[in-house]
């Protein structure tokens, strides 16, 4: 079976860059396709989000098909929030037949944080079980143990939150994901490089590749919002001060500089295997971030 291009990149030992693409709310794909064109040859893979923050959008699988059609390397983000085990397996098979060979297995946010608050959260599986389902299907069996006529093949990844408090429960789950067959991890956003380096000292003992999550800061307000509302992410005060002192209308520029600087530092000291850039609506500036990072 075909080895995914992303898997080849993971095994190459080079410093990897992946980036997140957010499908639109609606069927006008113009902007998403523009972002795909802008980034497909600049990064090793493009993750397509799955109803991010439980907000209903164009599907991840549809976005991945577009990435594929345009010659890019997609990572199918798959949450357990909206599909039971039948639907998840069916989508994995569809993805495989269309050349989508990378999957990121996530639990998914609660329905309550999104825009369809009365919906039924499924969570028939969790992220660890989904990873195992992928591996079982690769072995030619569905989750009920029935033979598949034609299997699947995926480079499977998962997520970890290196700055969560308390950290030990997250690390136990991280290890369960490794045991379940995760080959790579894209982390939740990190800003404190020293703390992240400590996490990496621990993570290095496992045979997985770690891509540090880089979330672009666009304003002081956004940084404060993250600290107040987003679990497991801490924007240190010195970065907030840096954004505040950037001058009127210059915060985004400063955010790009900070992201580029962090990526360069991670690469220079070979702290991790790569980065996963989440520009959240500002995909347009990812090439600038990469330029600042010297990539």
């Amino acid at each position: 079976m075909a080895v995914s291009k992303f898997k080849e990149a993971l095994n190459s030992g080079k410093f990897l860059v992946t980036c997140e693409i957010g499908p639109p709310k609606g069927t006008d794909l113009t902007q998403m396709l523009h972002h795909v064109d802008l980034l497909k040859y600049r990064v090793d893979a493009l993750n397509v989000t799955d109803h991010q923050s439980s907000v209903m959008r164009f599907p991840s699988l549809g976005g991945c098909l577009s990435v594929k059609e345009k010659g890019g390397e997609p990572v199918l983000q798959m949450t357990c929030r909206d599909r039971n085990r039948l639907a998840l397996q069916a989508d994995l098979m569809l993805a495989h037949t269309r050349g989508i060979n990378n999957v990121l297995c996530l639990t998914g946010d609660s329905v309550i944080v999104g825009d369809h608050k009365g919906a039924k959260g499924v969570f028939d599986l969790d992220s660890v079980q989904l990873l195992r389902a992928v591996r079982q299907m690769e072995a030619g069996k569905d989750m009920a143990g029935n033979d598949l006529e034609g299997g699947v093949s995926f480079c499977a990844g998962a997520v970890v939150t290196p700055e969560a408090t308390p950290i030990e429960p997250q690390l136990i789950k991280f290890e369960k994901k490794v045991e379940a067959g995760a080959e790579f991890f894209q982390t939740q956003a990190i800003y404190d490089l020293e703390r992240f380096a400590k996490f990496m000292e621990y993570a290095r003992q496992f045979p997985v590749k770690i891509l540090a999550g880089i979330v672009l800061l666009t304003s002081v307000g956004m940084a404060k919002f993250i600290n107040a509302n987003i679990p497991g992410i801490v924007v240190p005060q010195d970065l907030i001060d840096e954004l505040a002192n950037a001058g009127r209308g210059r915060a985004l520029h400063k955010g790009i500089e900070i992201a580029g600087r962090m990526i360069a530092a991670l690469k220079k000291d070979a702290i991790c295997d790569g980065v996963h850039i989440m520009a959240i609506g500002k995909e347009e500036v990812v090439p600038e971030i990469l330029a600042k990072a010297g990539l």
């Binding site: 997250q170 679990p231 497991g232």
Partner: peptide
């Protein structure tokens, strides 16, 4: 909230 069986999700913070 999600009825998870294999440990906490990434949404938890400070318990």
């Amino acid at each position: 909230n999600k009825g998870l069986l294999n440990g906490p999700c990434g949404g938890t913070n400070d318990g």
